[in-house]
Computed example of a mutant assay.
Amino acid sequence: MVRHDMFTISRHLDVPPGEVFTAFADSAIRRRWFRLPGSGASYEHDFRVGGGETAHSTFTGPDTAPERLEYRSRYIDIAHDHRLVYGYEAVVDGELRWTSLVTVRFDAETDGTRLDWTEQVTFVRYTGDGGADLAHLRGGSALRLNGLDAALRSGRTGQQRR
């Protein structure tokens, strides 16, 4: 059995769409907010249609055995400063857990950018009815967007000090 779900997270960011887009495209900036949990992480990022990102790490939780985490994505559509569409797979200990289609929109607002992150997910392995897995994924995505906002704020502060 598989479980299909979808969610959208919207955020206001205090920078123009071009700066938000760059935070996705530029690997150095991306590393400041997009990270796998755990230790020994490695990343490869190729920002172009047909390119993607791979990431690996080892996560050890309290009272649990270490888990090998793997993230593999492929960019499907890139509309500079406006939109990204990509698919990704989440693999734990060599087993595919879920795959998602993600659309990220960057819409200009008077004082920054409205970011809409829409994720359509298929859980191929899940716990119980899958509700906890969806909550975990949605929560992780929200935390990642918090990291994006922090990276954008720290980058802006650094620019203002120059």
Rank of each mutant, 00 (worst) to 15 (best):
R30M: 05
V20E: 00
A41V: 05
G38Y: 06
G51I: 00
R48K: 15
T60N: 11
S39L: 10
D46W: 00
L36S: 11
A23H: 08
Y43P: 03
L36C: 13
L36N: 07
H56R: 15
D46V: 02
G52T: 01
F21I: 04
S57N: 07
F24E: 01
F34W: 14
H56T: 14
F59C: 08
A23L: 04
R31D: 07
P37G: 11
R31N: 09
T60H: 12
T54G: 04
A55G: 15
G50Y: 02
G38V: 07
F34C: 13
F24C: 04
D26C: 12
V20Y: 01
A23Q: 06
R31M: 10
T60E: 15
G51Y: 00
L36Q: 10
A28Q: 09
R30E: 03
D26K: 09
R32G: 09
I29E: 03
T58P: 04
G51N: 01
I29L: 12
I29Y: 00
T54H: 11
F21A: 02
S42L: 08
S42P: 03
V49N: 05
R32E: 11
G51M: 02
P37L: 10
V20S: 01
W33E: 03
E44K: 09
S39D: 12
A28D: 12
D26N: 15
A25F: 02
T54K: 10
F21W: 05
L36I: 08
R30T: 05
E44G: 08
G51H: 00
F59K: 14
G50D: 04
R35V: 10
S42M: 10
H56M: 11
G40H: 10
I29S: 05
W33M: 06
G52S: 03
A28N: 07
H56Q: 15
G51A: 03
Y43W: 14
A28H: 03
R31S: 13
R48S: 06
S39E: 15
A28Y: 03
S42E: 10
H56I: 09
S39K: 14
W33D: 03
A41Y: 06
T60D: 11
I29W: 03
F21T: 01
G40L: 14
R32F: 06
T22S: 13
Y43G: 06
D26A: 11
T54I: 13
V20P: 00
R31K: 13
S42H: 10
G38A: 10
F21S: 00
V49Y: 07
H45G: 03
G50I: 09
T22G: 07
R30A: 05
A23G: 05
I29V: 13
A41C: 08
R48H: 13
D46H: 08
I29P: 00
Y43M: 15
F24R: 01
F24P: 00
G51V: 00
F47W: 05
G40M: 12
D46Y: 01
F47G: 02
G40C: 08
E44W: 06
